[in-house]
Design a binder for these strands. Sequence first.
DNA 1: CTAAATAGCGTAGCATCTACGCAGTGTCGC
DNA 2: GCGACACTGCGTAGATGCTACGCTATTTAG
Lengths: 249, 249
Amino acid sequence: MENDELPADVAAMWRLRETPRRGPKPSLTLDDIVGAAIEIADAEDLAAVSMARVADRLGNSTMALYRHVKSKDELLVIMSDAALERPDPMPEGVDWRTGLTFWADGVLTAIRRHRWYAKVPISGPPAGPNNLAWFDSALGVLKDTGLPEEAKVGVVMGLITYVQGEIRMAFDLAAGYADNPDAFQRFGSTLRRVADPRVYPAVARSVEAGVFDEVGSFEEDNEADFDFGLQLYLDGVAAFIDRVCVKGE
Amino acid sequence: MENDELPADVAAMWRLRETPRRGPKPSLTLDDIVGAAIEIADAEDLAAVSMARVADRLGNSTMALYRHVKSKDELLVIMSDAALERPDPMPEGVDWRTGLTFWADGVLTAIRRHRWYAKVPISGPPAGPNNLAWFDSALGVLKDTGLPEEAKVGVVMGLITYVQGEIRMAFDLAAGYADNPDAFQRFGSTLRRVADPRVYPAVARSVEAGVFDEVGSFEEDNEADFDFGLQLYLDGVAAFIDRVCVKGE
DNA sequence: CTAAATAGCGTAGCATCTACGCAGTGTCGC
DNA sequence: GCGACACTGCGTAGATGCTACGCTATTTAG
């Protein structure tokens, strides 16, 4: 095997690690470990994932895990690739704009099943099989736009950044809301108390208009915000495509 | 004082906590603590900020800090507001688009001085004095667009999300790059080895085109990507403004 | 059957956050 | 001036976390 040059975590995600031939049979698989870690993170939180808890859930001792995983960080990286299922196949013959909307909605629902996903720090370009599948799906939608390859990659990376950023913020806010709903409900009155209109005139205008006083249903609001921001970004992409290649799609 | 209704962290950020009248003089200020924590985070990392290290740097014991701060999380929230200096005043009479570009560049340079900022989880709407100043600045730029207040807030929140997401991802990637530059330099060849063109056709096309083989200077690339995505978003905002209020700006 | 390679795991070290309660100190009311 | 009281700082200790190291048991190649 010539996978010496592959980074360790990439090799692990593609299950390319050399299988040894001698020695006792492993009572533990990488898949077991990753699966248990994902279950814990789904049920509680990414912070609840500790090597001890994962091992406990598998009936093994903590240190046994380190035969299969080099460090906890590596486990997190592998988890985050495994948790994303493959994207649904793109409907045939869609234009790039509906395609990317479809794609972004797919990302949103996929991550909704594993809210901790947005908290794993991104350490590099998408290198695992599942992340790469999503990347490929978005890139494929742009095939007929006439953009040069590099620009396609740029557009998709920007989209990933937007979607992840939006999701992360939405989930953080939702967690804050769950912790302390009052802080949100009373945000308007908090601002009225604390924000001097002479120092914060624009905020004061919005406060006066009552923008911060109605707190709608959280989930639905987020869905709407997500689409709103997404369409703004896609408007920008459309303008970009027109600018770059005048022949259009 | 009638600040009973204010959330504890908000009261702390605005320095509205009741000053006691009896008892020994505090040898420690909230400002001291926050300042020391920021210094540690600037010099090393957000992960390096522990109550013990902060106390050490101040020549106090760990537990002394808990007289001024309810928990470490509260300290993080207060830190993240204190670290953002006030925005530069907006140039007089700019149109909204150059204004928001100016604003976004300001955020970028402000956070560049405190890279850990992007790692603090957002727990609610911007409630500290500095964060609120930035919020006000962006909101003020949209004054003459004719958008309803709620839409302005939506646009600014979307912009914050985009900017923070972009910055966070850029910094995460930069950290990953610093850890392991090879993974980036060889990303093209990694993909060639691991990504079957039949499964990942669009990725394969980009790989073939050599998109992943040239790794430019990191800082400059990021600056360009940031502006690129920002302009896309602003194009979207422009379209939105036209759609909502036809009379224009 | 022997020897090598490999799996699991016990121990221990180190760092983290923080609950609890005690001792000392400075101020207010009289 | 003087006592009572409120408040500060801090020591201890527990809970939890990651992981280096090395021992023992197990399995298979030869």
